[in-house]
Each structure stands twice: as C-alpha cells, then as structure tokens.
Design a protein around this nucleic acid. Structure first.
Length: 938
RNA sequence: GGGGGAUUAGCUCAGUUGGGAGAGCGAUUGCAUGGCAUGCAAUAGGUCAUCGGUUCAAGUCCGUUAUCCUCCA
C-alpha cells in the first residue's frame, strides 16, 4: 500500500466514525511557547483537551507533520527514527473513550476493507494497573492473553512515569500496538493514550479521575507504511526512497543500505525533508530557538555530504525531490521550491566557509601538538573551537584519524556538558498552570468589541496580582502602585497580536479608576494590564471600558499604512518580499520582509511615492469575515508559518490590497495622512527591516529634518544646499592638518565659495542631511554636535601647527651642533618647544643618521599646560654596548611627574609638570654620563 | 535566555609584557613588455566599530553600546 493511500484511508476511516477531519497544524506553532516544534498530533488540541476553548467538534482526526530532535543521534542508524515525520491520530474530547478507541484501532488495522493486517502479527501492551484496557483487548477483541503484556509506568504511561515523577496535571495510561516482523522483531506502530487522570502531588493516592476523559492516539505514518510495504526501514518506503536516491545521485555515490555512506544518505534524506518543510514555513536557519534547530539539522546534513566528498553546496538540489515526494499531501511545497532552495544554498555555502576556516584552525592545533609531542587531540580544545567558531568535532576527528592521532571524545563531551550547564535554562512546561489557565477554563474567552466601538460596559471576571511565581487570582484589590491584570467578559481593548500593540485606556466605575497601560492576550482571553489609581476593584463589578482614542487612531493609521507598504514593497522589489514580522504602534511601524539586498535610496523613495499615491487615492478600506478557502480564492496575502482561523477576517483596500488580518484599520486610506520611511536596515541574513512613520509623527519628523539641516548650515554658515560640500571640506581640512602636524606635506583644500540660498524641496533636504550624516558616520539627530566637535578639532590642530611653526628653527643639524662630547659619545639633551611626538622621533632618527659618532639624544617638549613629552634615542652601537634609551628615560621621567619606557633604541615618556623641564634635562645629562661610565665608555 | 569570539586600507587579514599602523590582493601613475591569468617601480587609500575608563602613553588593558559569527537552552 502506498503511503499516500494509507494516510487517506486512516482519515477516511475516522471520518466515517464521526470524526472531524482537521488540517495539520504548522510545524512551528508560534502560539505555543512551551514547544519549539509540533511534537505530536495532539499539540494543536491542548486547549480542547483541557476544555479551555469552545468545542466545535468533540472528536477529530489529523495527519500531523511533526519534528522531534530527541532521537537525532539515531537518525539514519536505526530503521525507524526521524526528526521530521508524519503522525496519524484520532482524538476524543470527552466524547468516546477506551472501548471505542481500542475497537476502532483493531478494526482499522485488521479489517479487509482497511489495512487487512494479519491479526496474528499484532501484539499489544497495556499499563500494569489498567485492567480495563487489558480486559477490552482480551474480551471484546479476543486477543489471547499471551499477546497482551502489562508494562511499567515508564513504558505505558503518558507522560512517561507521570504517576511517580510528575508533572502534575492531566495524564493517563496508554496501550501500544506492535507489529511482528518476519524476523520476529516487534515494531510499535500505534499508541493509544487514555487521558483519564489529574495528577495532584506525589504518590500515594495522587491520581484523581478526570470528569471528562479524552483519547489521544498516534500512529507513525512512515513506520506503518514500511510494515505494509514490507521494506527494511522507513527510508525504503515509496515517499522516502526517491529522496534517498536523489541524495545518492547528487553526491555521486551508490546507495548501499549496509555501509556508512548509506547511513549518511539516510540522515541527509531525513534532515533535508525537515528543513524543506521548516523553511517553507519561513523558519529560516538562524541563531535562536527553532531557527537554530533548523540550522543545526542543515549543517549536520552538509557535514555528512562533506564526508562523502562534497565540497560545494549540494543539499539545496534535493528540495525538488522532497517537494515531489510529499506533493500529494502537501502540494504547497511545490510553490516555494525556488525560495526554499535559495535559503538552503546560502546556509550551505556559509557552512562550507566555516569548514574552510575550521580546517585552518585545526591545522594550528596540530602544529602546536607537534611542538608538544602530543598524539591525543585535546577534547576540551575541540569543544572550545566548536563553541566559538562552529568547527565540527567530526571534522576534527576525521582529520586527526588520517594523521594517526587520537581524538579525546570523552574530554570533548565533558567540556560540552559543562557548556550546557553554564548556558542552562528552564524547560517549558507541557501544560501551563496558573491563574490565567484557571480563568481560561472558567471563562474560555473575552468577547472583543473593538472593531465597532471604543467604549462599552463590562463585568470584571478576574483580577490577577503579582508576577511570575507569586501571581494569583484575588477577589478584590485596592488602589496601589502595583501592576495588575484584569480580565473582563467583553472589551473594546485590542490585545497585542498580529504585530499590532495592545490598546491603552481606562476602566472606570463610580468608585474606581483603573489605568490600562497595555493589553495582551492569553489564548482567547484579553488581559488588561495597568494600575488601579483610585478606589477598589472587585470581581463581578460593572465597569466602563474606554480605549484611548488618540492612541488607537495612530495605531490604525500605522496598521493600514503597513498593508499599503507591503503592497508597495512587492511592486518595487518583487513578489518574494514577503512579510517576516511586523510591529504596529501609534503612528509608528516596523516591517520585516525577505530580501537579500538592502533597498537603495531610490527604491525607498519609489516606495514612499507609491504609498503617497494610494493615500491620495482615498481608497475605501473594508473588512469581512470569509471562509479561508474563499479568501485564498480572492488572492488575499497569506503568510507562511501563520495558522489562520476559519473563517478568517479579510481586510481590503481599494482594489490593490487584500490581507488576512485581525488588526484595527482605517475606513479610508486618505486618513493615513503622511507616510515616511525613516530607517532601512538588516535584521538577519536575507531579511530586511523598514521603519516608517505616519500621521503627526511623520509630520514632526519632517520638521526635525528641516531643522537639523538649517542648524547644520548655520554651523557652517553656508546655504543648506552646500552642507554636504562643506562637510567634505571640513573633513579634508582636518585630514590635511593632521598630515602637516605629522611632518608631511598636506596642502589645505580651497574653501568652497558660498552661494546664495535657493529653495529646496523636502526630498532634497532629506537627501542632503542623510548624505552629510553618512559622511560623518553619525545618526542625523547627532549631526550638529558632530560638526561642532570637528570644528573644535580643527581649531586645536591649527593651534598645534602654529606652535610647531615656532620650532621651525630646529633641525637635525641644529641639534647636532649643540651636542656635547662625553668620551666618544655625542650627547644631546634639550627642549624642543611645541614639537609633536612624530617630529621628535624624526629629528632623533635624522641626528643618529647624520652623526659620525655614537649619539644619545633626549628631547623634551611641553604639549599642554600640564603635559610634558619626552623622547629619547641612542645609536645602535650604544645599544649593543648596553646603553638603553628606555632606562635613560625612566631615570628622567619622574622629574616631570611621569613615567615611561620603550625599546632600547627609542623610548618615550610623558609627565605632568612642564616647569620642571630644565631640571629634567639636567638629570638627563647626569644620567647618561653615569650610564656611559658604567658601560666603561668614558 | 545564557556562554565564547570578531570588528584595523576598497577586499582578505597580520599586529606577542601598552611606547614608531602593516602585508597580500585590488586601485592610480610611470617604466618595461606586447598573441598566452605579463614584469618592475612609485603613489594614493585608515576617526584601528562606538562611547567611556585606567595610564605619562591605548589598535593593544577594563567597561558600555552597536553589528556580525558561533555554541548551548
């Protein structure tokens, strides 16, 4: 039986028994903070199981795409492990229970109409205390007791070992169904979980029956298909073998089940399938959370390829094979093949260069091992290379093996363990508990009225005080500075979601006033966060809820502008510029989208003008609730990685934009008023970010730009249109002055002639300000300060140069002329007023070159009111005889209140007391005489 | 959320107890050469990411911020 057929049969079977067929949840459920990836079919029904949402059906069946990394080390080595896999499941939310679950499972497996598996091949396990399940299998199904095993809680309980180890919460025994292979081995193909208990604390007597019992089953699609197709591993079934073959083809090796290459090809197959699905959902490889897992899967697969001899990106070539193999259940994969392979290719080539850099680092380690005569590669060092530069230990080990060196895996693992401990962190709870969860069960949802109104009366349903572990529900609370959370039965406040920030406003009654600073969501509840400024708030109290209208208006402008921006971006840079994330605040918005390059200034201006034209168009904005399929039909913008409810809210603007969106919008595009992009930057590889303003904030921004430009022009006392020119001039002047000071040439550029003012339009002004701030490498808001700093710097340089001019009479020759002879050595110790360090060094070099005899020079100069600079140098011949400029200067520097040092032939020192310079020169003369005589050169 | 690392010329990167900012490639110019991925020489190009601190003196030491890489959760 084909895998596609098995999938459909399973779903059909349970639909025929009254189940609602639901689509697979996304692979990365952003709504569920407790998991990175969907680990099982039941994940999307967590709130259904707990009765936290209104049930539209009481039983369901799905084929769920899942990703687990717990068994990652086994992938490819064993017949049945995957990271990505599909799980078939049937679920009951207080509907049917154990008997039907067992009977239907048996019927589906054995009936000739369905899978027609020989019942002699099947065995089951049950939890040791679950007599009910054991009896059902024996009496209702007629399975001999020899084929029913009773297992401990670590095997047949969910979560594993829950009764003794926890966690608290819903749990239950399970019953696993095994298929016996030809060689006698058993394969688990289906697990039926009977969630019937609530665990409360530690044993004994800690399992309380649940009022509403649930069924949660999972059948591994690939595993069951491999049994039905009678193939040796999951990788040999009809939907995986083509990918294995494609991988073998791309890597130019022959697939052999038994050897190492076979294992590598299977691992590549698994990982590329996982990555294709994840990237399809726009989970791109990255440094955090789910993105990091994808990156690691990709790199493991690339490393396998590397060890098969691949040296260039190859994985991305397998994406079409994955899309083809999975197309019958996931036809949408075909639409993104190009984008997905592009992303994977980029990551691959990055990793190949990491490997390249790694090889060099590994070589260095080997070199130092050679020096030490070591033959054991230090595991801790390998771990540190891996942690710092991503050098894979497998690579290290295989190169070490080629050179007959041993790799210390134990040391490596130990170091990695230590790193884990340091990095640490708590694990997410499978099911959350706490006051919010209690409210969810009691209230299920808050009705949102905010699309139609900004004011309504409401009843207080819950008040939460405290944070983190201390948070708890209270019946009543008095005014205080503490932050509270309030849940109402209905509210006009928008809870943060879909990128739009939560509303602010007031909750009022005759006796109390509660200021709402922020509004958040928890499932279908809306949580008002803020402070009770007066009176008392109690559960059951009636309040008037009023949203801050000015703020909401700004948010509406920004949100509608976001949709227009999305439209404009797509028409300017192309259809691939899809939304990656967005944040909408009061007249402020941030929009991330997929694009490899930065937007050019011209592109930004085109985008702005498109948005402006849509605003001017005064297109009506409307929304309606439609079936998901209808929205898709209408060509509405849909985002990967988003799970949309059905029916869904579709927002349309004129004829140019249709997006699925739960946010609050304007009635007409003209109400956006103004729109301006204020930043364009990178968020991560392949993703760009645009920040823009609307309404009054855009207006304010314009006046700021104009103000900054006129202040910049004032600082230069030039026309605004000349600011860039004058900026360049100032920078050039400083550069040349520095050169003059360093003793080089440095011709000053001519000052640009002033022109008369001419009227500039806003775009020109903005361009000038932007170009000038780029030149100065500051944000435009800092530009005026920066100009002043540079002008100060110029003045200072000019002063120093003026001082230096006074030294114009000093030269190597003039210095040499004042030398005194001490034995065979020429000694010079003198003041060179106004000289710079560079100049002094140059004189010393020249004197040493020009002098016929061994020479010792020490120059002193006051470089400021409380700063002295000393530079000393001696000829090489003196150095060879033990005279050190460093020692010399060390003896002199304390006189001027400083210290210093340097190399034997040239040293410098500083001090704080210029008035002591002549004393210091006296000391210098004595010190050098002393040194010369100690060296017996006198 | 946490650990490690990086940021120096247009590019790739050196810069070792803190004391003269460098190489290779590229660019420009000159000379030589003239079928082939030519040779020689000279020149230009740097707020050593940012801000602050220690110091007589910071590319170098300490801290801040930003950006990037990398690992763990």
């Amino acid at each position: 039986m084909k895998t596609d057929e098995l999938r459909e049969k399973y779903l059909d079977f349970f639909v025929s028994h009254g189940h609602s067929r639901q689509p697979s949840d996304v692979l990365v459920p952003t709504w569920d903070p407790s998991v990175l990836f969907t680990p099982a079919g039941m994940n999307q029904f967590k709130d259904h199981f707990l009765g936290k949402v209104k049930l539209e059906f009481t039983s369901a069946t799905t084929c769920q795409k899942c990703l687990r990394t717990g068994d990652i080390e086994n992938v490819g080595r064993t017949a049945y492990h995957h990271t990505f896999f599909e799980m078939l499941g049937n679920f009951s939310f207080g509907d049917y229970f154990k008997e039907e679950a067992i009977r239907w499972a048996w019927e589906f497996l054995t009936s000739p109409k369905w899978l027609a598996i020989d019942s002699d091949r099947l065995k089951v396990t049950v939890y040791k205390d679950d007599d009910e399940a054991a009896n059902l299998w024996h009496e209702k199904i007629g399975l001999p007791t020899s084929r029913i095993s009773r297992m401990e809680e670590d095997e047949n309980f969910w979560p594993a070992s829950a009764p003794s180890l926890g966690p608290d919460g819903v749990c239950g025994p399970c019953s696993e169904i095994y298929y016996q292979l030809d060689d006698g081995k058993d394969v688990e193909i289906w697990n039926l979980v009977f969630t019937q208990f609530n665990r409360v604390g530690d044993p004994p007597d800690n399992l309380r029956p649940l009022p509403s019992k649930n069924i949660d089953t999972g059948m591994g699609l690939e595993r069951t298909a491999s049994v039905l197709q009678n193939v040796p591993t999951n990788f040999h079934i009809d939907i995986l073998m083509p990918i294995v073959r494609a991988a073998a083809d791309v890597c130019s090796v022959t697939y052999d089940y038994a050897n190492d290459d076979g294992r590598r090809l299977r691992r590549i197959t698994d990982h590329i399938r996982a990555c294709t699905f994840a990237v399809h959902e726009n989970i791109l490889p990255g440094p955090k959370k789910a993105r990091y897992v994808i990156k690691r899967l990709l790199r493991r697969a690339v490393l396998d390829g590397h060890q098969l001899g691949m040296r260039d990106p190859f994985l991305h070539k397998l994406v079409p094979a994955v899309a083809d193999a999975m197309s019958s259940a996931y036809p949408e994969l075909r639409e993104t093949v190009e984008r997905v392979s592009g992303v994977i290719e980029k990551e691959e080539s990055d990793f190949f260069s990491t490997i390249g850099g790694g090889l060099e680092r590994i070589e260095k380690v080997f070199e130092s091992m050679k020096v030490d005569g070591s033959v054991l590669v230090d595991g801790a060092e390998a771990a540190s290379l891996y942690q710092t530069y991503g050098v894979p230990p497998e690579l290290f080990q295989s190169i070490a093996a080629e050179r007959k060196l041993t790799f210390d895996w134990d040391g490596y693992r130990e170091a990695m363990k230590k790193h884990e401990d340091i990095s640490g962190g708590g694990r997410g709870e499978l099911f959350q508990t706490g006051p919010i969860e209690t409210l969810k069960e009691a209230l299920r949802r808050t009705d949102f009225l905010g699309y139609e109104t900004l004011e309504s009366s409401a009843v207080v349903k819950g008040i939460i005080v405290g944070e983190g572990k201390d948070e708890r529900l209270v019946n009543e609370v008095s005014a205080s500075a503490a932050s509270l959370r309030v849940v109402l039965d209905q509210t006009p406040f928008y809870g943060e979601g879909g990128g739009q920030v939560g509303d602010a406003g007031l909750l009022q009654s005759d006796s109390a006033e509660f200021q709402v600073h922020d509004t958040q969501r928890a499932g279908e509840l809306i949580i008002h966060i803020g402070q009770l400024v007066s009176g008392k708030l109690s559960e059951g109290m009636q309040v008037e809820a009023t949203v801050d209208e000015t703020r909401r208006e700004g948010i509406r402008r920004a949100h509608s502008a976001t949709h227009i921006l999305h439209h404009a971006l797509q028409s300017v840079v192309g259809g691939h510029a899809q939304q990656q994330g967005s944040k909408v605040d009061q007249d402020w918005l941030r929009f991330d989208f997929t694009n490899q390059q930065s937007l050019s200034d011209e592109q930004v201006e085109t985008i702005e003008s498109i948005v402006a034209s849509k605003v001017k168009l005064a297109a009506p904005i409307s929304w309606k609730t439609v079936a998901l399929a209808e929205a898709r039909e209408a060509g509405a913008m849909m985002l990967f990685g988003e799970k949309y409810p059905d029916p869904v809210r579709m927002v349309s603007m004129g004829s140019f934009s249709k997006e699925l969106c739960g946010g609050t919008h304007l009635d007409n595009t003209s109400a956006v008023e103004e729109f301006e992009v204020v930043a364009e930057e990178s968020v991560s590889a392949g993703t760009r970010r645009v920040v823009a303003l609307t309404g009054r904030r855009a207006q304010q921004h314009r006046s700021e730009v104009q103000d900054l430009l006129s202040r910049s022009a004032a600082a230069f006392s030039c026309a605004p249109g000349q600011v860039v020119e004058y900026t360049k001039y100032l920078m050039q002047v400083i550069r040349q002055l520095k050169k003059q000071l360093a003793g080089g040439g440095g011709d000053l550029p001519g000052k640009p002639p002033k022109v008369t003012e001419e009227a500039l339009d806003y775009l020109q002004q903005r361009r000038i300000l932007r170009d000038a701030s780029r030149l100065l490498n500051v944000s435009s808001s800092d530009i005026v300060g920066r100009i002043q700093t540079l002008q100060d710097e110029r003045a200072k340089l000019q002063e120093q140069i003026a001082a230096m001019r006074d030294t114009g009479t000093i030269s190597a020759a003039s210095l040499l002329a004042m030398a005194t002879r001490v034995g065979g050595t020429m000694v010079i110790a003198t003041e060179t007023p106004g000289a710079t360090p560079n100049l002094m060094r140059q004189w010393i070099d020249q004197v040493r070159q020009q002098s016929q005899d061994p020479t010792a020079v020490l120059l002193a100069s006051a470089t400021g009111p409380d700063k002295v600079l000393l530079v000393a140098g001696v000829s090489r011949s003196l150095v060879e005889q033990g005279i050190s400029a460093g020692q010399w200067i060390a003896a002199v520097a304390p006189i001027v209140g400083g210290g210093g040092g340097g190399k034997p032939d040239l040293a410098q020192a500083g001090g704080k007391r210029p008035e002591k310079i002549s004393d210091a020169l006296g000391v210098a003369n004595k010190a050098i005489q002393q040194m010369l005589s100690e060296a017996e050169l006198v």
